[in-house]
Write a protein that binds this DNA or RNA. Structure first.
Lengths: 368, 368
DNA sequence: CATCGATGTGAGTCCGGTCTCAATCCTAGG
DNA sequence: CCTAGGATTGAGACCGGACTCACATCGATG
């Protein structure tokens, strides 16, 4: 009955109009549900559209409404469940409000991020949610912001830009976690992160990641508060791949002045660190205490279950999307949300093993 | 120096042309790098574009090229690392070829999938990669396919549609895994899946998911081959949320005729199943053997490390994207890829505990 | 010096919608 | 019966690029 369908061109309003015997304008009005259309025409047009199975071309629509109903999301690595969850929060919320999400991965590479932002802007997304790879080098983000396009940061800030940011107060939770370790008697606490830097960590250095900087600050703060020297030599960055994480872990846990507690900067690192610890024949928490950022379901299944810093990642995603949508719709920003990470005490942190310490038992009890 | 920037309209070719004192056509040619343009004009145009920081409007471009350089990806749940990894494979590959990805989550809900496909089509994506929520109800996918738009399935097939599909041979690996359990002496093997069904599992029933159907077939095959009766009562579907997984696990592990081995259909289920097992005070693998689909890094960290069925998920994502790109570029399909899952024997499967069985030691040794 | 093909170039159309504007219809009020 | 004002309707502009077509220009060939 229908055309042979060999050369298939999409059905357009013009086609529908012709079929319904009305002008293109009328058909468009009936279809788009705007302007004045008589019931009779509307019916005829709708019927024709149905018959031809007409579907509007969103590209064309976007072109002259200026709205694409699409938001761009730029993250470091979707493979990391941390971002997976955040992304889920974003897409769930966006979908409810009628927006779609274009997702771009940057591998935490600034050049890739610059590119991603450019591409998304070229595609005329209505807004952007970015987890900035660098909080220092933010020219491209500044431009987005200056251009007036809605923008929200998630997970990290970027160079003090006045942009709504959904992130937890890292310094606070880091200090709390460190204090917890200090209370357990640990003094040599290592911190291992993938953050790429030119040179090894030195105290006043500028770090690209606000998150990591805050975590280290938090640790230092806790040490200082307790009047203890902060073990800078145990802050280890550039823990890129499995091998480097392994060797860093070994280094840190060796020698007379070895670390007695290790803090892993994220779940991915944690895996390799724990493997390295197992390989060294050390046991958690008897020989080394272990703490990681992010609470994933599997952390309850290890032996011992891991003590972690839980972040409300999904909710941060939801909040980021909501904030962006408000911006896109020209509403005033809501009261800034406060996200608090919590220290979930499970079994991987124990009292510091100081050979022959009589207080150990008592400490263990106190830590519960 | 520049305009007040109050009302900001994007810079267009026309603007650039005016600034460079050439016609719009010439400017477009210089910018788009096509047609004939004198060096002098090109230079002037490029300079003007730079000065005005002109960026092409991809929407407009897509409109008359008909290509959006965007592909749509429809999956059940990005939060599940299984899809997280696959998505990563897709986006990595797409990006390399100059395509962007619009990601939509369906929560394994068919209505959501139908909607997602429609929206993506309306946005004129150049192609679609779908993990079909149902292999039965595939009208919307049929239409996509008939309309000639490039389409690739990942992870699952859909009603025998002649569409390139990147998935592992589930029946084969399921049979192998089941055989492994049978060899260990297990006869009561439970299979727990989230798959939603109207009624509890009964032998010949039609399952929405080709994957799950294949897995069950594989199990049955292994039993039959060994001349053993397939324990249909232990096939448990509808393990939706944590609570139902827990109670199903408890049910299955209770009573005189309890299961001695449990197979979890994916990593998310596995978590709850294992917790339920721990709560029951049973230990793996002494009391219950445990096997799960998908190999995630954390499975090596549990005690014991888990025996799993590893699927080349990332590669499937890569292959799906590559296949789609070939289709979109009008190339003939490459030879169909074969993805093989592998049984990774770690420590969660042990000999079946038959009270007072003298062979147990020997079996344990053989399973190593 | 006339001719021809290879550039260069500008005017204008098209993609598929949205939307403005002026013309046409209709109906109630005067 | 005539007319003002709202409801309908069609023609056409427009969004921002890509691309066609007709019209120069120009050096090389005969």
């Amino acid at each position: 009955m229908s055309a042979e369908g060999a050369r298939r061109r999409d059905v357009t309003v013009a086609d529908v109009a012709k079929a319904a015997q009305v002008s293109k304008a009328q058909a468009a009005r009936a279809l788009g549900n705007y302007g004045a259309v008589s019931d009779e025409v509307r019916e005829r047009v709708l019927a024709a559209a149905e018959a031809l199975s007409y579907r509007p071309n969103e590209l064309a629509r976007s072109m002259n409404t200026g709205k694409s109903h699409t938001i761009g999301v730029v993250v470091g690595d979707i493979e990391n469940p941390h971002f997976g969850l955040a992304t889920r929060g974003i897409t769930d919320t966006a979908k409810k409000a009628g927006y779609n999400v274009i997702l771009v991965n940057t591998d935490e590479d600034r050049a890739a991020e610059v590119d991603a932002v450019r591409v998304l802007l070229d595609k005329r997304v209505d807004g952007l949610i970015v987890a900035p790879a660098s909080s220092v080098d933010t020219g491209h983000l500044q431009e987005v912001h200056k251009s007036g396009r809605p923008l929200v940061f998630i997970d990290r800030t970027a160079g003090g830009m006045p942009v709504e940011t959904m992130a937890v107060d890292m310094a606070r939770i880091s200090r709390e976690a460190t204090q917890y370790l200090l209370d357990a008697g640990h003094r040599r606490i290592a911190f291992i992160s993938t953050l790429r830097t030119e040179t090894p960590y030195t105290p006043g250095m500028t770090l690209e990641s606000s998150q990591i900087a805050d975590r280290i600050d938090g640790m230092r703060g806790a040490f200082l508060e307790s009047g203890l020297p902060f073990p800078e030599d145990l802050v280890r960055l550039n823990a890129g791949d499995e091998d480097s994480i392994r060797s860093i872990t070994r280094e840190v846990l060796r020698g007379p002045d070895r670390a007695t507690a290790v803090v892993a900067s994220d779940g991915l690192i944690a895996l390799s660190v724990m493997e390295a610890i197992q390989e060294l024949g050390l046991s958690i928490p008897a020989d080394v205490s272990f703490l990681m950022y992010d609470d994933f379901p599997w952390t309850r299944l290890t032996t011992p279950p891991l003590t972690v810093i839980a972040q409300p990642v999904y909710n941060m995603g939801v909040a980021a999307a909501k904030a962006l949508i408000r911006q896109m719709e020209g509403l005033p920003p809501a009261a800034p949300a406060q996200f608090t990470a919590t220290l979930v005490r499970r079994g991987s942190v124990g009292p510091c093993r100081t050979e022959g310490d009589p207080d150990r038992e008592e400490l263990a009890a106190r830590l519960n």
